[in-house]
Amino acid sequence: MSLLAVVLEVAAVVGLLHLVSLVAVVGVDDLRAAPRRAPRTLRAALSPLATLAAVLAVNGVIRRLGAELSWLVGVNVTGVIYAIEGAFVAVVQSFATPAATAYFGFVYVFGYVYLLTFPLLATTLRGHTRTLRTLIAAYGLNYGIGLVCYVVFIAYGPRNLMPDLVESLLFTSWPRSQLLTSQVNVNTNVFPSLHTSLSVTVALVAYRARDRYPRWTPVAVALAASVVVSTMYLGIHWATDVVAGVGLAVGSVVAAERYERRRDADRRGDSGRSGESPEPGGSTERTRG
């Protein structure tokens, strides 16, 4: 069961990264307060969590239908993307060294999972309800819009279109990882790059919360940048996918923040009448522009 082995490996490494980061980012004091705070925070984030779960479930169903649906209703844009950017990814790969391949391979699989999961954990433990809700809503938007794009646009990545110029570096250096990635996605789903959009989403949200997460923000930004480069470096995504991914991330974060702001305003209006506390979660949260 080598797929299971890969999953366990990822879980173990990401778990280890979490442990280290918890101490460094969340801190001992907040960890002590966490058992009391976390359940309340999670309850407050229930509605975006349910939405995200629903989006992921739909994602799962659509993936079961597989590329079949795409081929029926979608357009093959591989040629268009190639016409736009040509062999740019091959240029990126021309800087390849064994060390860089190891680093970007690690970042693409382990770093990405860590980057996406840690802020959920950290904001929950520290009781930052609004940041958590924003993040989850942005994830949901990323997945939802990404999914529609995957159905509408059929595109193969550079490693599949120009095998003579672009090596499939992740899978030639660590073939077993493909057992995992092919469980998560099919090779026609490259536009836009969800690796890019979700990583950039985390980086944007972290940047907004930089006052409260001074240690996490630089890590998130650096890691997100590495993930973005890795998608091209490993020959999986086109630069076009990456640009579209960044656009999707910015759009998702802006929309999620706007939604949360409006919700807050509504709740304040309500609470003015009913006299309830507007912030059920953390105490340190401030509204930022």
């Binding site: 069961m1 080598s2 499939s168 899978f171 030639t172 073939p175 077993r176 493909q178 057992l179 990635t181 092919s182 090779n187």
Partner: peptide
């Protein structure tokens, strides 16, 4: 079913 020829080879060399 595996994703590509390289992975197929690795699954064989791994004894799976």
């Amino acid at each position: 079913v595996v994703g590509s020829g390289v992975t197929a080879v690795e699954v064989v060399t791994d004894g799976d």
